[in-house]
Amino acid sequence: MKQAKTLIRCILLDGFIFTFLALVALVVSIQPTEETMLKMGNNVMIFFGLWALGGVLVFILQKAKIKTLGNILFDPPQALTAQPDKHWTMSFWGIELIVAFIVAFITGLNVAHISIYELTDQDGLVGAMKVFGALFDPNWTILPKAILAVIETIFIAFMATVFAVPVAFVLSFLCAKNIMGSNPVSFGIYATLRTILNVTRSIEPLIWAIVFSVWVGIGPFAGMLALLLHSVASLAKNYSELVECVEEGPIEAIVATGASSLQVVWFAVVPQIILPYTAFTIYRWDINVRMATIIGLVGGGGIGTMIMQYQGQAMWEEVGCLVFVIAFVVWVMDTTSAYIREAIK
């Protein structure tokens, strides 16, 4: 049973590494045109075909008792016999690791178009210096406007956090395995909510901002809604993890007094989580201020929107002023929230 599990994991991991190496070799030797690279159906078949071959290769290696990288990672520790006379770079898995890394590195150089030539290009350098210089020579006349805009940003973040907290608070209990895991119905609710929240969280607030700016119009409200959604999903996850590690003792004691379920949660669970909840909430507000800036870039209001307007007109001195204001606010929020979180630990 355990061996079968390890074998499957090895086929997945080592098989994938072999597939990757084979694919790189294939691309280098055939030099396919862009058209062939875009033929999804064909390429998927080639990919899985190679993976199957890789799997067979892994299977053979396993039968031959050759330790692959998968064995090193997934075998139980006692199954690994030490080979003191053999340096790890001389073993099969060592060579596998080194080759895979070197091939991935060279592929990466090409795919990311990394080029020293572009980096040191004269025209490019001059342009970059101009923008950079302007950023360090801010136009302070727009400072009052920038301050008003950043206040808007801070309040967008604040409202998103305030509205998210009660929702996430309720959700956190419904998303905690120790509270919901006891019967099939509640476990169903738990699993469904977790999935929805995971999906919500994995969609960037930037995307939500675009959705909401179409829905309620461009401006701070759209930005607030985007942050709210993301905050609910993130806080519910943070909070529910705290609920999952509460101590059972006080819960048992309050249950033993004959208290109702709601009283048990309120008297035995809440006191244990209230401070870490507060810490996460402050941290979330801090994150939200930074995110609100980014969201402003796509029309979520606040200082981000202002940056977008000035950089569209290449007014770099003005952008410089805004960047300075943002940096200052983020620094203050960051320091304060870290200090408060430390204090309430």
Partner: peptide
Amino acid sequence: SRTLRSEIGMIFQHFNLIPRY
């Protein structure tokens, strides 16, 4: 079952008080 528990008190090895109260 709640009524029964209210009629039977219990104390525990680790006291199980609410620390912050």
